[in-house]
Design a protein around this nucleic acid. Structure first.
Lengths: 195, 195
DNA sequence: CGCCGCGTTGAGCCACGTCAACATAGGTGG
DNA sequence: CCACCTATGTTGACGTGGCTCAACGCGGCG
């Protein structure tokens, strides 16, 4: 059930890729930091049986920065779609202050966005999550790999049923077109109108 | 309405202190980074009229780290109680990678906690917020400076009325004793039982 | 085949949002 | 000092959005 290219330690291409639902790393296990090349990752606190959603990491974000101090990961990380990782700081060189500050700033923004997914009406929350997970194609539209409803429910703080109903509404409203079971096309604008 | 000791640039004591409700800094304005000595700070996105809760910073956290790259703050910061700040990196020296990683790790944890304040039943959310804001006294009890209901509502994603009712329940349940209008004593354990 | 996990949809209920009335504290000017 | 105002907190009544419970379809897999 692990990655098809196990850590890719063969020297040439140290990147790793994961499919929807795969565990990228577990809290408490040793490892290093990665940059997300593409895809979305769900972070969870407390690997012991019970898992509580603790954050979202998207393309460009750094995964497991805390391992650079403590040596082990603080969160479970699970792929919410097709995820590609590349090692952060390949040479083992210490990260520069500049780059770390960039990480910190982007992390602050990401945390604020994630927080926003848990306030307001259910429909808007799910819609916003879709927009966050979507990646831009050329033509102004955006493509999503739709995660499991259970994941979406835990991220938004809703129930599976409510998320399902919101997804149905999105489809009926023409804001989301499904192609196959998992793929979708987001039609709505990335940013709602500014009053 | 600003701080009584304006930035304290007099050389000797560069610390700043703020009272409940005071604006510490506004998004977009220039400034530097601070460490929170004591108190709680609320971060908001988008200073233009409308403000949306974007995060919580507590004692020990760093405020405005993003200003070290961009020169300006990315968020509004407002005191949720009596807040004392000390400058971070006094000499203007660049922060070490080690310390930045510490910040990053603690920020991840804080973000996860803040997220947890927005899921579950209203009563538990408010209770949890009280526990986060409380500072330990010697005797196992904890003391809180209770922020405005409006702040608490925006942090937890509830309404003012619901927060008020939850606070009443906390009082009736003996989990919170009020001394005066703003001060409270938290009786409950800092950590709920672990099944 | 049967089983299981997942998504969907419906029915009913309840916690929370909404609206409203009122109490209290603090501020400001007389 | 009081009169007045505003911001803030409290409580009640009521409506509703989302949770709960349940049933069912579907696809994957042994």
């Amino acid at each position: 059930m692990q990655s098809p290219n196990p850590a890719g330690t063969a020297g040439r291409n140290p990147c790793r890729s994961f499919a929807l639902g795969e565990l990228i790393h577990a809290a408490g296990t040793p490892g290093t930091a990665w940059r997300i090349r593409s895809g979305a990752v769900r972070l969870d606190r407390d690997g012991s049986g019970e898992h509580r959603f603790a954050g979202l990491a998207l393309a460009g974000d750094i995964l497991g920065a805390e391992s650079l101090i403590y040596g082990t990961y603080a969160f479970d990380a699970r792929a919410l779609g097709d995820v590609e990782l590349e090692p952060w700081l390949e040479g083992g060189a210490a990260p520069t202050g500049e780059s770390l500050l960039q990480i910190l700033a982007s992390f602050e923004r990401r945390a604020a966005e994630t927080l926003a997914l848990r306030a307001g009406e259910a429909f808007d929350r799910v819609r916003q999550l879709m927009l966050m997970l979507a990646r831009d194609r050329g033509d102004g539209r955006r493509q999503v790999l739709i995660p499991g409803l259970r994941d979406m429910a835990e991220i938004t703080g809703l129930t599976v049923e409510t998320v399902s109903r919101a997804m149905s509404r999105l489809r009926k409203a023409g804001q989301l077109q499904k192609h196959g079971r998992r793929f979708g096309l987001v039609i709505a604008e990335p940013v709602p109108a500014n009053p």
